[in-house]
Design a binder for these strands. Sequence first.
DNA 1: TTTTGGTACTTTGTCTTGCAAGGTATTAGT
DNA 2: ACTAATACCTTGCAAGACAAAGTACCAAAA
Lengths: 111, 111
Amino acid sequence: MEKNVNTENVRAQMRKGVLEYCILLLLAKEDAYASSIITKLKEANMIVVEGTLYPLLIRQKNQGLLQYRWEESPQGPPRKYYAITDKGREQLEEMNNAWQEIVTTIENIKN
Amino acid sequence: MEKNVNTENVRAQMRKGVLEYCILLLLAKEDAYASSIITKLKEANMIVVEGTLYPLLIRQKNQGLLQYRWEESPQGPPRKYYAITDKGREQLEEMNNAWQEIVTTIENIKN
DNA sequence: TTTTGGTACTTTGTCTTGCAAGGTATTAGT
DNA sequence: ACTAATACCTTGCAAGACAAAGTACCAAAA
């Protein structure tokens, strides 16, 4: 169905730009490792794939927004648990403001 | 001020992905030419520059979402007035849905 | 009639980012 | 050993945002 493909494109397009925001939102609530983040976002209708998420987490870590620790897994290889830093929380506040502003802006344009 | 630079980055990041949506929203209300679109978006706090907008308009036109006509200007060179097409309005509806879904998703993640 | 200033459209090159696809590593059960 | 499940990482491509520089048109002043 062409329409569904198109619909997915539209949604994918809009998801870009709020992905980093979503990661910080999730990690502000609790530490998590990459695979679990993917699962959580998928549950929330915000689809992300590994090839997107891993580089993104590394970028945010390099910016000092996140830090990580290794933890044993009950099954399989150890997990890299990411946690938000103080700087990450500051950034998150910025993003909360930015997001609110965008939502308002769209409403204004719609009238 | 480092904070302002950062703030701008955050906002710029989020604006991506909703830009096309904003263009269609504006053009659904009335035809407009590029420079006036830039002005309108700036008034709505959605900053765009020429190097972003022109290729975007061309892309949307090539997708059949927009069409254009030339019109004399009271002063200066003629203006390329863009108008939304039927296909563009369909796409706009998709985008309205997509936008609403994203807003809801973010709310869900926030709890 | 050349120059200047304002308006408008376009292109080029760089950088960032999303993602498909493929790869590596660890553990437990067979 | 082999397999399956889990988890992390990298590579290469493509799309898009933007700064910067370029082109073109018009009218009024010099």
